[in-house]
Nucleic acid binder design. Sequence first.
DNA 1: GACGTTATGATTGTTTTTGACTGATATTGA
DNA 2: TCAATATCAGTCAAAAACAATCATAACGTC
Lengths: 249, 249
Amino acid sequence: MLTDERHAIILSLLNDAGIVKTQELMRVLDCSESTIRRDLDQLEKANKLKRVHGGAKRLYQLNQELSTQEKSLKNIQEKTNIGKFAASLIENDDVIFIDAGTTTLALIDSLKKGNITVVTNGIQHASILAEHHIQTILLGGKIKASTKAIVGSTSLNELKSYQFDKAFIGINGIDIEFGCTTPDPEEAAIKKLAIHQSAVSYCLADETKWNKVNFVKVCDLQDVTILTNKSRVDLTSFKEKTTIMGATS
Amino acid sequence: MLTDERHAIILSLLNDAGIVKTQELMRVLDCSESTIRRDLDQLEKANKLKRVHGGAKRLYQLNQELSTQEKSLKNIQEKTNIGKFAASLIENDDVIFIDAGTTTLALIDSLKKGNITVVTNGIQHASILAEHHIQTILLGGKIKASTKAIVGSTSLNELKSYQFDKAFIGINGIDIEFGCTTPDPEEAAIKKLAIHQSAVSYCLADETKWNKVNFVKVCDLQDVTILTNKSRVDLTSFKEKTTIMGATS
DNA sequence: GACGTTATGATTGTTTTTGACTGATATTGA
DNA sequence: TCAATATCAGTCAAAAACAATCATAACGTC
């Protein structure tokens, strides 16, 4: 096998894997350790790769760590659709509340720039909103480690002094009998109060939330407008008690 | 498996989880404890992570957070040292205030687990603290987009109701005549009040802050203890007006 | 075929990496 | 608090990978 041929193969392998081992190359190229070593030497001098003990690696790590979100693509898609629909409900000069949670995060991604004021209890939400130069007020108080949501009496007191045009609430369970429920009492208190302080309230709920019941009740179905992906759930039984607005699928 | 390969996997795991355990890495990478320990050592020296008892934790993303002029390794090293020293001042059962800013971020990286309560106006600070399961209270209020700090009347009112054992303040300028100064009036108000509400206050200041004057005065030099890297600055002229504690270099 | 050039594989001794072991230090649970 | 346990840093020898050298093989040119 020609030298150039081997070099091409080595670079191609590197491009795929990001890292190659000497032993591996000996097998693939069927030649001695010395030859591989010489090849790597030359390629390094030509600035084509970086030698490391045991093999070589690419010069520039292209695939900078993408955090492996374990969420299924379908679920992301659905959340995005609901978020997009929710964002379309927001008008200029609105003062809105955005609850912590992943579904409401999707809403933020779809938010258009405009003269709105957002109050939220989600740390990540606030951070992203501020980056987008949207006027943002974060509630103060204890941080719940698992969800990075602000909860507790301080935040409730603060919340009492605000009045919202619209509130967007994330919810964990929707049931025709037990209404909207969520597992954490402190988060439930925030949701409850936010709904109370708002002229109109929307609950964002993807497919996975329907016909589930959680520990603490937040509100009855008739207290809010449910935003969902209507094609996915049979809603006939909910119709009488609920106002449902479907997100585009 | 190659060293670089292991390092990449460790960093990737860290990026996802925020924290990795030695035992877990031994299983995943199929190698001995010694090897993992060496890997973590090297990655810590390269400022890629922070070792903790039992494993390692993620460092705040310095490259993203620091402005280009602050990115030099020396500067990071110095911030780390000051942060380490500041962390050593914290005792069990303390209630402390941590100001927003990059120097105080370094303090958080060195915080040991323990029964402490932290109040902060830095969104990122709060987020990291919560991840490490440290009892955290975030001040509520407007978000200043550029520094991701909470400011404004709401936060000041909230702050008034707290009393701290220690306050750790970031500062932009230290001058023998004009004292501690910072560019933003709203952030200055927070710093001022935090110092007032605390039994003891420390100003964290790396080399770049000395003999600089900014727009708004926060306090006189005698009101606080300056934490710095004493070898780097000629402090003789400051001695009479200032309490200075040097960080280990 | 003789000759110089280049590529290859084997061999050498050196350096790096690794896992096991040691006693020291930190954490945990009673 | 104390003792039990887990994790730590440091040392060591074995194993793997290394650079350097040499002799042989392949190639092209005359």
